[in-house]
């Protein structure tokens, strides 16, 4: 029984003495081992091997998240209640930055007037058919304001129900312009950007540029009074030249459900290429907020007060537009 393990057994084959031959091979062996290690490192994630440990919980969480949104590269599995998609926003960020910094070279004036937090209603002049102005103002505030909150911009009915436009606008933060939506946004603490000129503003022909039209029927002022949030006038200089509308063509537009077809120097002559806005120089001017909280929500019933405030708001936006136009030496710079 003990024969096999007996060390002094004569029949045990002696271990060959190769000691003298190993010495010169050691470096070669080391080099081979190093090569093997490198190969292993290259095959697995280098970072994980470098750190020496893998965060299994994090890896599992990541996989779990991936599996629940399989096949969802360009969107997230959760949107906010008005349909804004974080992933689409993140992916669109670069394009928005390009438009903001390089294409329109947007500058802001009076950002210090936006101090403080809490919901507020921003009211701006509207121009152009597609809501570039809303996107750019929202982008400016998100970038430059301390709170980093992205205001939600309101979009006219006919635009947000247009096929192909609606899915993208909703994901980029556009909301249909109506009292219920504005109330809900303000009550949940969002900043809201409204363009009460509406269709009349979008349909401004070139020679009427920077003339602020009637601000609806005072709905913005009433909304601000009821929710007791300040009204902030905003003048956007630039977009009114980005799509210079020469005249409006109504008959063919009615056929596809649009209120009018804008005829610009490039559209519809150049086809879809004509939809590109011109690279004008933009200035966004923010005015002093008009406080509404001391008036109280019952002031919304006072028709004369509402129309007086609406007219004051219109005047302030117009003077902000003049400020912006004075700041700008020419349309292009």
């Amino acid at each position: 029984m003990g024969d096999e393990i007996a060390p002094e057994g004569a029949n045990v084959v002696p271990f060959p003495d190769v000691g003298s031959e190993i010495e010169p091979d050691l470096d070669e062996l080391r080099a081979a081992l190093e090569g093997l290690r490198r190969e292993i490192r290259a095959r697995f994630q280098p970072a994980a091997v470098e750190r020496g440990e893998i965060d299994w919980m994090e890896l599992f969480e990541e996989l779990r998240r991936r599996v629940s949104t399989l096949g969802m590269v360009e969107r997230s599995g959760v949107v906010d209640e008005f349909g804004m998609d974080e992933v689409v926003m993140r992916r669109g960020q670069r394009l928005l930055d390009f438009l903001f910094d390089t294409y329109w070279r947007v500058d802001c004036h009076g950002l210090d007037r936006l101090e403080g937090s809490g919901p507020r209603l921003l009211v701006a002049n509207r121009s152009g058919v597609l809501p570039y102005d809303g996107l750019m103002v929202a982008h400016a505030i998100e970038r430059h304001h301390a709170s980093g909150a992205r205001p939600r911009f309101l979009v006219a009915d006919w635009l947000i129900t247009l096929p192909f436009v609606q899915p993208y606008l909703a994901r980029l933060g556009g909301v249909r312009a109506c009292r219920e939506n504005a109330d809900r946004l303000l009550q949940s603490g969002h900043w809201v950007l409204a363009f009460p000129e509406g269709e009349k503003g979008a349909a401004k022909v070139f020679r009427e540029r920077y003339r602020v039209m009637r601000l609806g029927r005072g709905g913005v002022v009433r909304t601000a009074l009821e929710n007791r949030v300040p009204l902030v006038p905003v003048g956007v200089v630039g977009p009114e030249e980005a799509h210079p509308i020469l005249f409006k063509w109504t008959t063919p537009a009615r056929m596809v459900g649009l209120p009018f077809l804008p005829v610009t120097p490039t559209f519809p002559w150049l086809g879809p290429l004509g939809l590109l806005p011109l690279p004008t120089k933009w200035w966004i001017c923010f005015g002093d907020p008009i406080p509404t909280d001391e008036l109280g929500p019952e002031a919304a019933e006072d028709e004369l007060l509402v129309s007086r405030l609406t007219e004051e708001l219109r005047g302030r936006i117009e003077s902000l537009l003049h400020t912006g136009l004075d700041l700008r030496p020419s349309v292009w710079s």
Partner: peptide, 14 residues
């Protein structure tokens, strides 16, 4: 609670 666009629903379901 919550809302989802139709296309996202279909993508979630494969």
């Amino acid at each position: 609670s919550g809302v989802l666009p139709l296309s996202t629903l279909l993508a979630l379901a494969g």
